[in-house]
Design a protein around this nucleic acid. Structure first.
Lengths: 105, 105
DNA sequence: TCGCGTGTAACGTTACGCGTGACAGGTTTT
DNA sequence: AAAACCTGTCACGCGTAACGTTACACGCGA
C-alpha cells in the first residue's frame, strides 16, 4: 500500500466527497432531510459536502451511526486528508533527535 | 485485532503518555530543552505531557520530524484516544440509514 | 407563479491550541 | 545557606474553526 509513501500523486478524498459521491446518491434523501436526520444544521452539512469544513468528532459520530461505518471511518478519512495537505505546505522543519527504543518490557 | 471492537477494556494511551514514558526518558533532554528544540513553548509541551492538551496537526508534524515516526503516528494516536472517549460519553444517537453500496466502478 | 431544495454570506457563540508572563515547589550546584 | 535550574500550573489575550440562526439568491418542477 501507499499510505506511508512520502509523496502521493494526489490528495486523499475529502470526507465530504465520499459522502457526496458515494453515499448521498444512494440513500434517497435530500441534503435538507439528511441534515435534519443527523441533527445538524443544513449549512453544516452543506459546508461538509462542499469540502469547506472538516469532519469534527461529533460529526464523525453522527455519520458513523447513520451509515453504520463507525466514527473512526470518517475521522481517519479527515486525518488522511489533513496529513496530506500538511506535508505539502512549509513543514515546521524540526531537527531529528537520535534515540533508541526502550528494550524493557 | 481489537481496534473495531465496540468496547475496549481501557483507554488507548494518550500521545502525551507515549512521549512521557517511552521517549522522554531515552533522549537525554529536559522538557525545557525539548520544547525549545521543537519550537514550542514549555507550557505547550508540558500540557501535552500531562495529557491536558491534545496533539494538534502542527504538534504532530514537529514530533514526527523530531522522532522520525511521522505526523500520522501522533495524529492517529490522538484520534484513537478521542474516539475511545467519544464512545463512552452520551453518543448523539442517530438512527441508522439503510443503504446499498454503489456497485458501479 | 409559487414552493422547495440548495449554496452561501454574515453574525455571534463556544471550544481549543498556543505564546507570554508570572508564581511556587523541588532538586542540584556552588 | 544561597543561587540556579527544572517543572507544573494559572491567567491573559489571540487566532482559528465548527456550529446554529437568520437571510438572501438561484434553479427547478408543479
Amino acid at each position: 500500500m501507499a499510505a506511508e509513501t512520502p509523496t502521493m500523486a494526489f490528495a486523499p478524498a475529502h470526507p465530504g466527497a465520499i459522502l457526496r459521491e458515494d453515499i448521498l446518491p444512494n440513500i434517497g434523501m435530500t441534503v435538507t432531510e439528511l441534515a435534519a436526520h443527523l441533527g445538524v444544521s443544513r449549512q453544516a452539512l452543506s459546508g461538509l459536502l462542499n469540502e469547506r469544513r472538516s469532519v469534527s468528532l461529533e460529526m464523525a459520530q453522527k455519520l458513523g451511526q447513520a451509515f453504520q461505518n463507525g466514527t473512526r471511518f470518517w475521522l481517519a478519512l479527515q486525518m488522511q486528508h489533513d496529513i496530506w495537505w500538511a506535508e505539502r505546505g512549509e513543514a515546521p522543519r524540526v531537527a531529528p533527535i537520535e534515540w533508541h527504543e526502550d528494550d524493557a518490557a
